[in-house]
Amino acid sequence: MLILFLCALLSIVTTVGIVLILLTEAVPFFNEVSILKFLSGKEWAPLFSIKSFGVLPLLSATAFIAGMALLVAFPIGLLTAIYLSEYAPGPVRATVKPTLEVLAGIPTVVYGFFAITFISPVIIRPLFQTESIFNAISAATAMGVMLIPMVVSLSDDAMRAVPSNLREGAHALGANRFQVSVRVVVPAALSGIVAAGLLALARAVGETMIVTIAAGGIPNLSYNPFDAMQTMTAFIMEVAMGDTPRGTVEYESIFAVGLMLFVSTLVINLLAQALLAKFREVYE
């Protein structure tokens, strides 16, 4: 019994551990680099001899790529979910759902490879006459494909939780399937659907390998999707790959960036959970 309790307690210990470690390593970093400069600086060059630690390029690249990925995944995922939940005949549903689950189970390093061997050279480069293989839009597209199953599965859950007597009520008033889906089911499931989008966004913000492989890895405060960029996660990878000795400011900088990453995903996740709680309150 006590052992079981300790098992459950471990989750709290993990959280505390994450927060403590990020803080203890980030505090010495912020002793050397002022928080204000960190948050407002427009240049990120921690590995040069004249270092500068302005996190804005990493932050903007993270938001930009995650946003573009969501732009791919959310509409496609939502439409798929509506189709599967409201239209698709049983056998179609029974085939498509496991197929999309396969997509969800593919490691992200494979998506990264797909981005630089297919999306970028076969689609993006001929279409937009870009020069480099490594650019934000290829990474974002691959990430969008990766997020589709997540959006589908979560919004499908939300729509199927809408009681079927609401659908019946609308049909009895002379609504066709489209009107039932768009005017009754989607609004009734809205908080669940928005939560699905937020959870996908958090996942995109924290996604590491796709951007490390495909986005170019150059800190760049730009909003041109064809530029190379470096996200927060890709920076952590870059430092981790080179043997940066412990105790240096470069080493500490990955914890400062990690802290920022942790806080941003936490905020998005908490928002999503609040929405889901509200959704469940209505239907359970």
């Binding site: 009520g169 009895a172 008033l173 009754v184």
Partner: peptide, 13 residues
């Protein structure tokens, strides 16, 4: 053209 009322009240949210 035909109205229907169900067993369990089912107002839309």
């Amino acid at each position: 053209r035909i109205g229907m009322v169900f067993q369990k009240p089912n107002p839309f949210p």
